[in-house]
Design a protein around this nucleic acid. Structure first.
Lengths: 224, 224
DNA sequence: ACATAAACTTAACAATTCGATAACTGGATA
DNA sequence: TATCCAGTTATCGAATTGTTAAGTTTATGT
């Protein structure tokens, strides 16, 4: 199972995290300050690091920066813990390469969910890092934005391409209209969800009718 | 739409929350003390609970702890309301498994934003957690919205799928018609309870007769 | 900066599927 | 045996999606 390092000076939170993460089946190590944490990271290469921002000796951001500068540590995902007031450093943290933030106080469920989500993201990114998606007769080339069906090249618009790519990235999975709107159109989009239908229609016309299946009352899915 | 339970003894805040959440399209129920709140939670399984910390009979943390210890309630997100002076033991609160905290006085916009954020978080993170339910020869894939019996794929409608999923999520547990109506059809639904029978009938036809058992005078259960 | 084309959104209407209800039947229970 | 509860079926209306076209925005090249 995945190995997680928790770098946190407050023993209560440290134990709370350790207890709950181990209950989820992760292997957990802890360090109580930045110096020890960094040593652990450099010698043990954990699979994920949870870093409190305010810790003695070396703070979270510094550790993050050091990790990102070393080739063998650069890929390790990092979750930063911040107290409620410290949210100013968010931008700085992003620059330092943290992958997620959790503001204290947090629920254990939340942090576990985020750990899992992060692992999932890393896994799927590593998997889908290939620029070409092949699904039967369909080929989706992300790099040069090209789609071919059999031998024929298919011209898609930007939205159509995004929609197809998202659906085809997980064949079989049902995507609700809301989910599609949120991910392609953005969180703040306040529009008709019928818009999705129209784009689906266009995709079906340009490709084949039965590539995208309608799940009535739920959404759409790319056939497996 | 999602069903929210507000447990709060102050009638002003209770109504304020109810009014504003309903305006946002949520279905809202209220309880004025911990005992009634807990009953409502256990019998109705709301989709989210807003809990005042200081309420008569059973306080918020106790309810939270009870919820987390019961399998069918453990996943329900909880927002805790605290008065400004109340210094909650943070770690205790975290262990109890609340998902978010709001300090009184709060603005309605804030609480609505948090409710929505929490739903979004839970949806995107938790739903991908347990995607497949296996019950003997029956397989229920939530992500793909697919049901197979043995090797055969079974086409279910939305309502049928929801019904089967709920029943199969706790084999052996008897669900009353009222519970099923409130949980799947919504708090507001005022209809014939024969409706449930018809959908059960359809499920039995599409699957096997003896998967869903009738408990005369009570309701239905999925066989263990 | 402008004209033009392309892409996107919205609206309206058609087609289809689904679900609620009523009414009747059958069986269990007291 | 009477009564109550669940099973069953067909039908109608409602909800969802498909489809087309017109209107609006955005992008592109000159």
């Amino acid at each position: 199972m995945a190995r997680i390092l928790v770098v946190e000076d407050d023993p209560n939170i440290r134990e709370l995290l350790q207890y709950n993460l181990e209950k989820e089946g992760f292997e957990v190590r802890t360090a109580e300050d930045g110096q020890k944490g960094l040593e652990e990271i450099e010698t043990k290469w954990p699979d994920l690091v949870i870093l409190d921002l305010m810790i003695p000796y070396r703070d979270g951001l510094e550790i993050c920066r050091i990790m990102r500068s070393k080739r063998e540590l650069a890929h390790i995902p990092v979750i930063i813990l911040t107290a409620k007031g410290e949210e100013i450093d968010r931008v700085l943290g992003l620059e330092m390469g943290a992958d997620d933030y959790v503001t204290k106080p947090f629920s254990t469920r939340e942090i576990i969910a985020r750990v899992k989500a992060l692992f999932r993201r890393v896994q799927t990114i590593e998997k889908t890092d290939e620029e070409v998606l092949i699904r039967g007769r369909l080929t989706i080339n992300i790099e040069n934005y090209e789609v071919t069906l059999g031998e024929k090249k298919v011209d898609l618009t930007h939205k159509e391409f995004q929609l197809l790519y998202l659906l085809a990235s997980r064949p079989g999975k049902v995507f609700t209209r809301d989910f599609l709107l949120e991910h392609i159109w953005g969180y703040e989009y306040l529009g008709d969800s019928r818009t999705v239908d129209v784009h689906i229609r266009h995709l079906r016309q340009k490709l084949e009718d039965d590539l995208i299946e309608t799940i009535r009352g739920v959404g759409y899915k790319f056939i497996e």
